[in-house]
Amino acid sequence: MTIEEVLDKHQDRLLAVPGVTGMGVGERAGQPVLVVMVAAITPELRAGIPASLEGYPVEIEASGEIHAL
Results as ranks from 00 to 15, higher is better:
Leu53Met: 10
His10Trp: 07
Val33Arg: 01
Val17Ser: 04
Glu59Leu: 11
Gly55Cys: 12
Val38His: 00
Glu61Thr: 07
Pro18Asp: 12
Leu34Gln: 04
Gln11Ala: 12
Val20Gln: 02
Met23Ser: 10
Asp12Met: 09
Val20Ile: 09
Met37Ser: 07
Ala62Asn: 08
Asp8Trp: 00
Thr42Asn: 14
Val38Pro: 01
Val36Cys: 05
Pro57Met: 02
Val20Arg: 04
Leu45Phe: 12
Pro32Met: 03
Glu44Thr: 14
Pro18Trp: 13
Arg46Lys: 15
Leu15Thr: 04
Ala16Arg: 15
Pro50Gln: 09
Gly19Phe: 10
Ile41Arg: 15
Met23Asn: 05
Ala39Lys: 12
Leu15Met: 15
Leu53Glu: 06
Glu54Asn: 11
Pro32Arg: 04
Thr21Leu: 01
Ala40Trp: 08
Gly30Asp: 08
Val17Asn: 04
Val20Glu: 01
Gln11Arg: 11
Val58Ile: 08
Pro57Trp: 00
Asp8Glu: 12
Thr42Met: 15
Gln11Asn: 08
Val36Pro: 03
Val25Phe: 06
Gly30Tyr: 08
Ile49Asp: 05
Val17Cys: 05
Gln11Met: 09
Gly19Val: 07
His10Ser: 07
Ile49Pro: 03
Glu61His: 08
Ala62Leu: 07
Val35Ser: 04
Leu45Trp: 11
Gly26Gln: 02
Glu44Cys: 11
Ala47His: 10
Arg46Thr: 14
Gly22Val: 00
Leu14Tyr: 13
Ile41Val: 15
Ala16Asp: 14
Arg46Tyr: 09
Met23Cys: 10
Pro43Phe: 09
Lys9Val: 03
Arg28Asp: 08
Ala40Gln: 15
Pro50Phe: 06
Tyr56Ile: 04
Pro50Met: 06
Pro50Trp: 09
Ala29Arg: 14
His10Glu: 08
Val58Arg: 04
Gln11Phe: 05
Ile60Ala: 03
Gly19Asp: 08
Asp12Glu: 15
Ala16Thr: 08
Arg46Phe: 09
Ala62Trp: 06
Thr21Pro: 00
Glu59Phe: 03
Pro50Arg: 14
Leu45Lys: 14
Asp12Cys: 04
Gly30Cys: 07
Asp12Val: 10
Thr21Lys: 02
Asp12Phe: 05
Pro57Asn: 05
Ser52Leu: 01
Glu59Asp: 13
Pro57Ile: 01
Glu27Lys: 03
Pro18Phe: 12
Val38Trp: 00
Met37Gln: 05
Glu61Arg: 15
Ile60Gly: 01
Val58Ser: 06
Ala62Ile: 06
Thr21Arg: 08
Ile49Val: 15
Gly22Cys: 00
Arg13Cys: 00
Glu44Ser: 14
Glu61Trp: 13
Arg28Thr: 11
Glu54Ile: 08
Thr21Gly: 05
Pro57Val: 03
